[in-house]
Design a protein around this nucleic acid. Structure first.
Lengths: 196, 196
DNA sequence: GTCTATATATAGATAGAC
DNA sequence: GTCTATCTATATATAGAC
């Protein structure tokens, strides 16, 4: 892995763990094992680094979606796969989603990063809307609200529960919420008495 | 209003707008109209100020809940009132919820503030669970999942949608999600074709 | 209770040697 | 591409006068 890639990886972890405003080039340098001036060689400003990371997330998501298509999954399985992309944040390290942290810090970020974040959000909503539309058509999903609202509800609750699960040190919340979303979409009722 | 109260009010706005890590005592001093050394007289450290603010939110919520009881509202109206406590974040200023921003910045906050935030979250979930339980009993609410999961779903989606609505400059998302929550709780179906 | 002045540390960033 | 050295700005925080 190139130094540039190492920097991005370390910075990405810092952002998801602590936030964009709570790590420094010095922190990066320490983790990567180079001096902080060297970080500036790869990313002249912190903003450049921030943009590169959000951009990478967009690219990675598109690649993920492309690979997913090759797996011949049904729409319920694709929904599960979508949830799984978030599961690692809560089970592997003390992280939340990129949208969650950058959306929270929004007004302290450069306009460029904000815009890239909006595009990232739109990518995901667009993908979800397509999934919901297709799943409705095949009969796998049975909800009655319009797909846009349904997609909004999904992204909102995922983003929120990741933060809430971490704050309260209870990863189980994540699974409770994703299970509810899934059951709701499939027109099923949740078994009464599920305890947290 | 005392200087101490002014400081808290200004700091509160900064936190909800930019986050805890993106405002300084100098910023506070400028807004309040005193020198930054004077801020330290009221709050020796930034952490003291942070704790005071989360603590104030807890007190305010308890007071709000107490006042609400005096108004003789039914459970659906109480739910609406709960939503309204968040509405101002999105309509009055470019803010998100305290849980949202501090939950996102969690790992950069002191353990004391984290703990106070957990208590704040628990206050709200406890209140919601009681509302849901009572509303089920009266027949105003008709959901079948356990109240704990339902409460989790509500707080998650509210927290998430506040951030998403702000990021995408679309306050309407907030109303879409709260309407869906309400309809879901009341066992109603959302009208098809609601456009965003 | 608010001020001026200052201490100390660290932030983001650049210059220039190797 | 990485380093040492340095710059400038700003952060949190304190001392002590008024």
């Amino acid at each position: 892995m190139s130094t540039r890639e190492s920097i991005i990886e370390v910075a990405e972890n810092f952002i998801l763990e602590r936030g964009y405003n709570a790590f420094s080039f010095q922190d990066l340098a320490n983790m990567v094992g180079i001096k902080k001036a060297s970080i500036h060689y790869h990313f002249p400003t912190k903003e450049d680094l921030g943009k590169a990371i959000v951009s990478k997330f967009r690219t990675d998501f598109k690649e993920w979606a492309k690979q997913l298509e090759l797996q011949g999954l049904n729409h319920v399985e694709k929904l599960d796969a979508y949830f799984m992309t978030y599961k690692k944040f809560i089970t592997q390290g003390d992280k939340i989603s990129l949208e969650g942290i950058l959306g929270a810090e929004l007004n302290s970020l450069s306009e460029d990063i904000q815009e890239e974040l909006r595009l990232f959000f739109q990518d995901r909503v667009k993908w979800l809307k397509q999934l919901l539309t297709d799943g409705l058509y095949t009969g796998e999903f049975k909800f009655t609200v319009d797909v846009e609202s349904q997609a909004m509800m999904i992204v909102s609750s995922i983003q929120g529960v990741l933060q809430i699960a971490r704050t309260n040190k209870n990863p189980e919340f994540f699974f409770t919420v994703t299970r509810m979303i899934k059951n709701s979409l499939m027109g099923m009722q949740m078994p009464v008495g599920v305890k947290l």
